[in-house]
């Protein structure tokens, strides 16, 4: 079967991961940060499935992990969006730079 092999999946996952990190680390818009978080979650899920390419017997375990992880990812998304909304209510903006009370 000439399904794409492991390396491709793994690289995709890593690049998604880096994109997601970029989103968290660099972007000031809180919604974009949340999107970045979701991208990271997706990359992690993809990574799990990529490993099944190496060993077919891991598939049930990987599927299990992905399902749980997706559910958790949804919960995280909901929670973080709620935080964004609260922050918007408090600061009047969705700029992450405004949340700097925990400073020196």
């Amino acid at each position: 079967m000439s399904t794409p092999d492991f390396t491709l999946y793994a690289l995709t996952a890593i690049s998604l991961y880096i994109i997601g990190l970029y989103g968290i680390a660099v972007r000031r818009n809180m919604v974009r940060i949340v999107i970045g978080l979701e991208i990271i979650t997706a990359s992690v899920n993809l990574n799990f499935l990529a490993f099944t390419k190496l060993d077919q017997s891991l598939l049930p375990l990987a599927q299990y992990f992905v399902v749980v992880s997706t559910v958790i990812g949804a919960a995280i998304a909901g929670l973080s969006l709620m935080i964004v909304i609260q922050a918007y209510r408090h600061y009047g903006s969705i700029d992450a730079k405004k949340l700097s009370k925990l400073r020196w």
Partner: peptide, 17 residues
């Protein structure tokens, strides 16, 4: 030294990375 505590989320994340 305490100026590293900027309180900005992005810098914290960069530090974490």
């Amino acid at each position: 030294f305490r100026r590293t505590h900027t309180g900005l989320l992005n810098y914290n994340v960069i530090g974490m990375i």
